[in-house]
Design a protein around this nucleic acid. Structure first.
Length: 357
RNA sequence: GGGUAGGUUGAGCAGGUGGUGAGCUCCGCUGACUGUAGAUCAGCCGUCUUCGACUGUGGGGGUUCGAUUCCCUCCCUGCCCA
C-alpha cells in the first residue's frame, strides 16, 4: 500500500490535468506549487503565514537539515512536521541539487558524493542509501530519489553518464526505502537531449516510484529547450498515471508551459528569493520596490491581491522598509509573492475545471 | 585672546613632505536571480560629446617650468588654556 494516492482527470488543454494528491498530512490539489523551505523554514514566513497564503505543501532539504540541526535531532524532537510547526504535507529534496549547486565543494563517484561542508569544511558523504535514511528520519510525506543533476548545456556524453548514474541510484533508493508512511519519487534526467530523456523516462518509470519528477531543467538551457524537453517527457509519460513533478520551476510563464504539458507539481525558490530583494509579482507585472519611483506611491503592491501586505500597506511603505533593511520587508514581500503564486495556481486549476483556461 | 589638530567627489575616510589625487566604505541609482552556501550578487555612483577627455585637495594671493605639498593672508570646525 502506498503512502499517497493520486487521482487526476484530463482536460481539453493540451496534456493539462486536474488532480488530487492525498498524503499522510493532507490533500494537495494539483496543479500545485510548493514554496521552498530549505532549512525547515520558508525564509521570512511562519507556518501561519503559509496557511494564510494558501500553501498546501512545502519543500525542505535533506543535505542542509542533515548538517544543521541534524536529522537525528529532528527525529528525536518528533520529526520535521512537529519540529517546524507545519502540519501540512512536506516534500524533501534528496540533496541531489546540492551535487550541482555545491559541485565545487564535492566529488562525485559511482557510489555517491563527498562534500566539504559549506558550514565548516568537514567531509560529508551522501549516497542514495544515506539520502533515503535522512529523509526517513525527517519524516517527510514525500521523499525524493538521490540523483545527479548536471548543467543541461554540457555535451550529451557527459549528461548521459550522470543520467545513467541517476538510474542506478534510483534503484538503490527504492531498495533502501522502508517507511510505508512516506512516498518516494524518482527523477528523470537527460538534459535537453530527446533521446536521453526518453531513455530516462523508460528507466525511471519502470521502477515502483510513487511519483515521477522531471529534473535537470532551468539550469542553463533556453526556454525553447525546456519546452521541447517537457514535450518529449510528457509524450513518453502519456500512459503513466502517477503524479508528475517539475523540479525547480519556476516563474509564472513557466507554470503555463508546464501545466499544458502535464505537470502537476512545482517548486521554486524564485518567489521568495526575489521577494527578499524587492521584486514583487503582481497582476500588472513585476515591481522592484527598491526603485525610487515607489517612495511616494500610496497604492498597494497589487490591488487585486488579498494578502496582508496588499490589504494593509502601500508600495511607499514597503519601499521604505527595504531601504531601512527592516525585517518586515522580507516577510511582507515573501508573503505577497507566495500568495500571488498560490492564487495563480488556483486560477489555473479553476480555469482548467470550468473550461475558461 | 593664546595654543593645537584639522578642512580631499552626498557622508566617512585613504593617499599625497615640488613632478598627472577619480582609491576605499557607506548612502544613492539600476539590473540579475528557477529542486536556496543568496536579507545575496553585479554594474554605475564629479562633469562631458564616456575604449576617451576635462575638472576637483576650504577661499584668495605668492614662489616655481610645475603647488595637494613651500610662503602670505582670510574663512570654517574640533580640542586645550585663559
Amino acid at each position: 500500500m502506498s503512502a499517497i494516492s493520486f487521482t487526476s482527470r484530463a482536460t481539453p488543454i493540451g496534456r493539462a490535468r486536474l488532480g488530487s494528491l492525498t498524503t499522510p498530512h493532507g490533500v494537495i490539489e494539483t496543479p500545485q506549487f510548493m514554496p521552498v523551505g530549505t532549512q525547515a523554514t520558508v525564509k521570512a514566513l511562519s507556518p501561519g503565514d503559509l496557511h494564510a497564503a494558501g500553501v498546501q505543501v512545502i519543500l525542505a532539504n535533506t543535505y542542509h537539515l542533515s548538517l544543521r540541526p541534524g536529522h537525528e535531532r529532528i527525529a528525536r524532537l518528533g520529526g520535521l512536521h512537529r519540529f517546524m510547526g507545519w502540519d501540512g504535507p512536506i516534500l524533501t529534496d534528496s540533496g541531489g541539487f546540492q551535487v550541482f549547486s555545491l559541485a565545487h565543494l564535492g566529488k562525485v563517484d559511482d557510489d555517491g558524493v563527498t562534500f566539504a561542508s559549506h558550514l565548516d569544511g568537514s567531509p560529508q558523504r551522501l549516497t542514495p542509501e544515506r539520502a533515503v535514511e535522512i529523509q526517513e528520519a525527517l519524516g517527510s510525506d514525500i521523499a525524493m530519489a538521490f540523483d545527479q543533476l548536471v548543467d543541461a548545456t554540457l555535451p550529451a556524453a557527459e549528461i548521459a553518464i550522470a543520467m545513467q548514474r541517476t538510474h542506478r541510484w534510483a534503484e538503490r533508493c527504492i531498495d533502501a526505502h522502508t517507511r510505508v508512511d512516506q512516498a518516494l519519487f524518482g527523477i528523470v534526467q537527460g538534459g535537453v537531449e530527446a533521446d536521453l530523456r526518453r531513455e530516462s523516462v523508460a528507466s525511471i518509470s519502470a521502477l515502483p516510484f510513487d511519483g515521477i519528477a522531471i529534473g535537470g531543467l532551468s539550469v542553463g538551457e533556453s526556454k525553447v529547450q525546456m519546452k521541447h524537453t517537457l514535450e518529449v517527457v510528457a509524450e513518453a509519460l502519456a500512459d503513466d498515471p502517477r503524479v508528475r513533478y517539475l523540479m525547480g520551476v519556476g516563474s509564472p510563464p513557466d507554470f503555463f508551459i508546464a501545466v499544458e504539458r502535464g505537470v502537476d507539481l512545482f517548486d521554486c525558490v524564485l518567489p521568495t528569493r526575489v521577494a527578499r530583494t524587492g521584486q514583487l509579482w503582481t497582476s500588472t507585472g513585476r515591481l522592484n520596490l527598491r526603485n525610487a519611483r515607489f517612495l511616494d506611491d500610496p497604492d498597494p503592491p497589487d490591488s487585486d491581491c488579498r494578502c496582508e501586505a496588499c490589504r494593509n500597506h502601500s508600495r511607499a511603505y514597503l519601499a521604505h522598509l527595504f531601504r531601512a533593511e527592516e525585517l518586515l520587508a522580507y516577510r511582507l514581500s515573501s508573503l505577497h509573492n507566495v500568495t500571488y503564486t498560490q492564487d495563480l495556481m488556483r486560477r489555473i486549476r479553476q480555469a482548467l475545471d470550468d473550461g475558461s483556461y
